[in-house]
Nucleic acid binder design. Structure first.
Length: 101
DNA sequence: GCTTAGGCCATCA
DNA sequence: TTGATGGCCTAAG
């Protein structure tokens, strides 16, 4: 368990519902700018029963980086929708309740 | 919308 | 030590 992972987990755990964060943002907030790819690799390595809201992690365009036919993509989409997001295709649309431009 | 091109960093062959 | 790969990023056509 590295400092990097710990920070990522903390931030992710502290991320409120209805909000998403980009890989770069997450890495930056963790204090490791440029570690976006490691975030992805970290996600890939996460256990399926993890408590972390990995589904709130999207790329900078607020798009899901999974292929649409993958199970992970469907789960992420469903969870995000549960949190108030509107998903069109693989894109996330801001909910009116969300404090996002 | 798309592809290229550059850069970032850990991991594995 | 390279080279390739990965839920990536940004910028530029």
């Amino acid at each position: 368990m590295t400092h990097f992972k710990s920070q990522v987990f903390l931030i992710l755990d502290a991320l409120p519902q209805g909000e998403c964060i980009a890989y770069g943002e997450l890495a930056k907030q963790a204090g490791f700018p440029g570690y976006a790819r490691q975030i992805g690799q970290l996600m890939k390595n996460l256990p399926k029963d993890t408590k972390l809201p990995w589904h709130r992690v999207v790329n900078s365009q607020r798009r899901i980086s999974f292929a649409e036919n993958t199970d992970a993509y469907l789960r992420q989409k469903a969870r995000l929708k549960q949190e108030g997001w509107v998903i069109v295709g693989n894109k996330l649309t801001v909910n009116e309740k969300s404090t996002r431009k």
